[in-house]
Amino acid sequence: MAKAGNSEGGARRRPTGSGRGRAVGAGKRGPGAGDVGGAGTPSVELTAKLEPRKGPAKVPLNTRVLASTEARLTWLVNDRQSTVTNVVDVALQEFFDRCSVPPADHDGRITEQES
């Protein structure tokens, strides 16, 4: 039996763009995302969205979860118009609080509290 392949005789490849590995909601634009003010200058709303936001430092966290967990996460992100980063951060903070993990400072260091 011959191997399945393309017209050039090579192996078939999976189609790209399956959605895996992309951020949830990637490619979606909010209302007014393309609005510009008069004379070619950006509107106030657009300018406010483009200004850099200074927030707490973030670091990458890679993990694997059950497919059922990912489905629930995706549903929550879509339902609450949130981001995976925010949902995971809130969930982990609540879990750490329940487990009495001491808080970390802004540099990510935990200072052990004496009892």
Rank of each mutant, 00 (worst) to 15 (best):
K3E: 11
A4I: 11
G5V: 06
G5P: 01
N6H: 13
N6M: 12
E8M: 12
E8N: 15
G9D: 03
A11T: 14
R12P: 02
R12G: 08
R12S: 08
R14W: 13
R14V: 15
P15G: 12
S18C: 13
G19M: 04
G19I: 04
G21H: 05
G21D: 05
R22G: 02
A23F: 02
V24Y: 03
V24P: 00
G25M: 01
G25W: 01
A26M: 09
G27V: 05
R29Y: 13
G30Y: 07
G30T: 07
P31W: 10
G32D: 01
G32M: 02
G32I: 00
A33G: 05
D35G: 06
D35I: 09
V36Q: 09
A39F: 10
G40P: 00
T41S: 15
T47F: 07
A48H: 07
L50G: 04
L50V: 06
E51N: 10
R53L: 12
R53Q: 15
R53V: 11
R53H: 14
K54C: 15
P56W: 01
A57L: 09
V59F: 09
V59G: 08
T63Q: 05
T63H: 03
R64C: 02
V65N: 01
L66G: 01
S68N: 07
E70S: 03
E70C: 04
A71K: 12
L73N: 00
T74H: 07
D79T: 14
R80S: 15
Q81I: 05
Q81R: 14
Q81F: 09
S82L: 01
T83D: 04
N86D: 09
N86S: 12
V87K: 00
V88E: 04
D89G: 07
A91Q: 03
A91Y: 04
A91D: 03
Q93R: 15
E94W: 09
F95T: 12
F95H: 14
F96V: 04
D97E: 07
D97P: 00
C99H: 14
C99N: 09
S100P: 02
V101Q: 05
A104V: 07
D107E: 10
I110A: 02
I110C: 05
I110N: 02
T111L: 10
E114F: 14
